[in-house]
Design a protein around this nucleic acid. Structure first.
Length: 289
DNA sequence: AATAATATCAACCGCGTTAGG
DNA sequence: GCCTAACGCGGTTGATATTAT
């Protein structure tokens, strides 16, 4: 299978998006909904490739995105999920609906990884985060069970997303619309967001568009043709699994694996109220093994 | 105040997967 | 069943901002 060109390289603009381009893109998506990215450049006159349009929308213009200022709880959740899922940022992002995979990936690479290393060097000599080292230390059988858990969780998330799709109209993710922090460029994008907010309230009956604020472009019919992996990563995570991850569920901590002595990192992960939450999260994971 | 070093993050690149002809 | 086109993802780059010297 040959690799096709993503777009016509001639005349395709690269680099940062201008507010005008953003508005053009948003306006088009207002009318047609997200998806069918290929059609956007010719129909809007944007000199951008379809890929760039999709990326701009999903990572920046899409409503419901919270930017910057990761909370401690979010960071801990990311660390937990990264240890469980690896660098599957889209899957991790599905558990943090207000965050984009790109944002989480950036935060991990630029901050969390260093933080883990710092905490780790304070505890052991390993250059790798203790979560990863903890994973390394587990037996092969345990590792395989972790993988199975991963698959099961993905399946469960998908079924939940499918079953709760209809009732997710009043999505909790929408709350970010009113609490989005501003950034340097956000002043212009906030205007776009307001534009979108009006659109959202006015076109909620539009298929494939109604969920745009609550989930992402991924909810639209055109993009529902995603791969199996995309099914888990693209699913609209209902609040329930998130609450589960945050320990708002009752779960029985039986069958949990033997814990190694706590490192500084683990202490960080376990401190405050996150302690119980992490246990519950891990228990939930092991419950599916 | 000027320069260098470092951090941050938006955007790009290339690969894998999959739907459709 | 094969091939092409498109989508989505993860890794990486590069521009800009911030901090240190």
């Amino acid at each position: 299978m040959g690799r096709p060109p993503c777009c016509d390289k001639d005349g395709v603009k690269k680099g940062p998006w201008t507010p005008e381009e953003d508005i053009t893109l948003v306006s088009y998506i207002q009318q047609h909904g997200p998806g069918n990215w290929r059609a956007i450049p010719p129909n809007t006159g944007l000199r951008r490739c379809s890929k760039s349009c999709r990326l701009r929308w999903t990572n920046y213009l899409r409503p419901g995105i919270k930017r910057g200022n990761f909370t401690d709880q979010e960071e801990k959740l990311i660390v937990h999920l990264q240890s469980l899922l690896g660098n599957r940022w889209a899957a991790i992002a599905s558990y943090l609906p207000e965050r984009t995979d790109n944002d989480i990936k950036n935060h991990w690479n630029t901050y969390l990884k260093k933080k883990l290393r710092k905490l780790e060097t304070g505890g052991t000599d390993s250059p790798i985060g203790s979560v990863q080292s903890g994973r390394r230390s587990i037996s092969k059988g345990q590792w395989e069970r972790c993988l199975q858990t991963d698959v099961d969780m993905a399946k469960r998330a998908l079924s939940q997303a499918l079953s709760m799709d209809k009732e997710s109209k009043a999505s909790p993710f929408d709350r970010s619309l009113s609490s989005r922090p501003s950034s340097t460029y956000a002043s212009s994008t906030e205007n776009i967001s307001r534009l979108l907010a009006g659109w959202m309230s006015g076109t909620s009956s539009k298929p494939g568009v109604a969920q745009a604020s609550s989930a992402s472009v991924r909810a639209d019919p055109a993009s529902s043709q995603g791969s199996a992996s995309a099914s888990s990563s693209n699913c609209i995570m209902s609040p329930e699994p998130l609450e589960s991850l945050l320990g708002l569920h009752d779960s029985t901590p039986e069958g949990s694996e033997a814990q190694a002595p706590l490192s500084l990192l683990e202490s960080w992960l376990l401190d405050e109220d996150a302690g119980q939450k992490q246990e519950n999260f891990l228990d939930m994971a092991t419950d599916y093994m």
